[in-house]
Design a protein around this nucleic acid. Sequence first.
DNA 1: GGAATTACTGCTACAGCCTC
DNA 2: GAGGCTGTAGCAGTAATTCC
Length: 281
Amino acid sequence: MTSTPRTQPRQRGQPDPLRLMGRLSGRDRLILRTLADHHVLTTDQITDLAFDSLRAAQQRLVVLDRLGVVGRFRDRLPAGSQPWRYYLAPAGAAIIAAERGQPAPAPSKVRARAIALAASQRLPHLLGVNGFFTALAAAARTSAGTCALEQWWPERRCAAEYGELVRPDAYGVWRQHRRRVGFFLEHDQATEPTARAAAKLAGYADLAIAEDTPVVVLFWLPSPDREASLRPELERAAPRAVTVATATPTPGPASRPSVAAATRRPARLPGRPTTRTPTRQ
DNA sequence: GGAATTACTGCTACAGCCTC
DNA sequence: GAGGCTGTAGCAGTAATTCC
């Protein structure tokens, strides 16, 4: 092969959203909508969300990047073998705003938001949450309709709905056959004491009382060790109206939540409690 | 029907990290 | 430092679709 630069300079200028809209497929719009709601996704998370192969996703994302509807960054130098993080670029933001009947955000604001995101210390946390849900989406896509991720609310929307009582990282509704489970996600990175993590359940108890319905909280944990140390605290702290489940990524070379993790672990979700679930029946 | 376009895959190369 | 691994990119080829 001839030696060519790994990345070619993008012909960007100021893309015209009207012209771009005709070049975007339904899948492209799904990616843009997801980025609009959830801010940032890695290459493999987008693969989980919308593609059957990583190679296809990489190729399409390069096209979307050159069109200027998405942007991408890596969160450290040297770049190394680190997947790109994709965000909604100004043209993509304008398209999604039009789709939702909202005014297009100023390009300077979109860029500033992307820079803040790339520099944010919460980026790994956000990617962890998004990775969990894209793994669920991948499981749903390959399930031949037997299961589906019916809702995926970001932290911001959860805060708007329930912020006075709880601050979950996300809310989701997962359907498996005819069974439907809504759950709040708490993404734990083992950066706080287990007691403090378990103390969050009090807020969910208040929410269950306020809403007059049981609530489900899933703790998404970085490792089986963390799960083993946190579960006793959860057992002690779990209020009657709160069903608690835990999940970890499956062990393996990839640290991101795998499809197997996302599909197997929800078996411990409420609705199908097991002896490991610290729920008071 | 043939050309052009689009989307995808296989193969290969490159860059950087990690382990020994 | 060598080799394996991961992630991305370029090229060639194929298949489906669209347009004239």
